[in-house]
């Protein structure tokens, strides 16, 4: 056998295929094994908005007509789901370069493709979002009042909740159903913390709008409490993911990206809003500040996840160890 040229990256060879000589290189000239995705800003913005959109869907289910329900909050949640329903996939369409290519996705319905499921999920979400917002507009006197009587708001809110839960979670599944090492190793953690972050973002956005409009104090407290819960779960899941990923997680949790994640997402985006919420004073301005911090943290989480995934694709050693 011709010995390959000596390679500084040589790794002990007795781990897998018998007694191969020690000079056998562990990679192919340090070349990346994978082609990394070329995803830039639009995809990050989509993941961010999609999370808030899905979270607003879940909130619509929670704010549905019940004895203690607050019409102001329900209105804001239904309208924000309605506005985000076209906005977040719209950003994705821009990313296609030729937006009309999107139509090709409508010829396909494939259970095994997360992207296909996502497209149909987004389209399905827009139906109850539109109906719910229409009925709300009728109640508010903007549209004809018979619309309110026609739309079963109970049903649209529940459907919105389930579709919202799908949309807020599927983006994580979409990432982990690839060969990108960082995303693949987080097949359970990434969808889970995407759900938490999306719901926390939706609480933050809707609380901010409610606060601007001078809404009910009790509704604000409820949103803050749910946001704190979701954020705490996100923090725990991020830490669990860091431990689980090991060295594959280095592009996300170490270096500049790791610092940004720790300061913007974890400290400013999760811990700081929680502390602000617990402060006994501050009023509306405090709510707005806490919401802005949560939203910024959610954006940086998506950005770090995407950029770190691209970096991990460049590492042939990580790519070679494909997790189950």
């Amino acid at each position: 056998m011709n010995p390959p040229s000596p390679d500084a990256s040589g790794r002990g060879a007795s781990d897998g295929f018998g007694d191969l000589p020690a000079h056998v290189p562990a990679t192919y000239y340090e070349r990346p094994l994978l082609k990394k995705p070329h995803w830039e800003g639009e995809v990050i913005v989509y993941l961010f908005l999609g999370g808030i959109m899905g979270g607003s869907g879940i909130l619509a289910l929670l704010c549905d007509d019940h004895p203690d329900h607050d019409e102001d909050l329900a209105r804001i949640v239904r309208y924000s789901a309605f506005v985000l329903a076209p906005a977040s996939p719209g950003v994705l369409l821009l990313h296609l370069g030729r937006p009309e290519r999107f139509l090709h996705m409508l010829r396909i319905f494939k259970w095994r493709s997360v992207m296909s499921m996502g497209v149909w999920g987004l389209i399905a979400f827009s139906v109850p979002a539109t109906l719910g917002a229409g009925a709300q507009a009728a109640r508010d006197g903007i549209l004809w009042s018979w619309l309110d009587a026609l739309v079963p708001r109970r049903v649209t809110d529940v459907v919105l909740g389930f579709l919202g839960a799908f949309i807020v979670g599927y983006t994580g599944v979409l990432l982990s159903a690839t060969a990108i090492p960082l995303w693949a190793i987080g097949k359970r953690h990434i969808p889970a913390f995407c759900v938490c972050s999306g719901l926390a973002g939706a609480c933050a956005l809707n609380a901010a709008i409610l606060a601007i409009g001078g809404g009910n104090e009790r509704s604000l407290r409820k949103l803050e409490r749910l946001e704190m819960l979701a954020s705490a779960a996100e923090l725990a899941l991020l830490e669990a993911f860091r431990r689980h990923a090991g060295s594959t997680g280095d592009p996300m949790f170490t270096g500049k990206r790791g610092n940004k994640l720790r300061t913007v997402t974890q400290a400013l985006g999760i811990v700081a809003p929680a502390l602000l919420t617990l402060l006994p004073f501050g009023g509306r301005a405090k709510t707005l500040l806490a919401s802005a911090l949560t939203l910024a943290g959610g954006y940086v989480l998506r950005e770090t996840l995407i950029e770190a995934g691209k970096a991990s694709a460049d590492d042939p050693r990580a790519a070679s160890r494909q997790p189950e």
């Binding site: 990679t27 095994r112 997360v114 159903a177 969808p191």
Partner: peptide, 28 residues
Amino acid sequence: KPEAYNLPERPVLPSTRQAAGYAAAAIT
């Protein structure tokens, strides 16, 4: 070893990870 040829140690179909991901998202 496969790595020397730029092949993964043990290839996996990425789509097999979906069930675990959907389940984790649904539970959360």
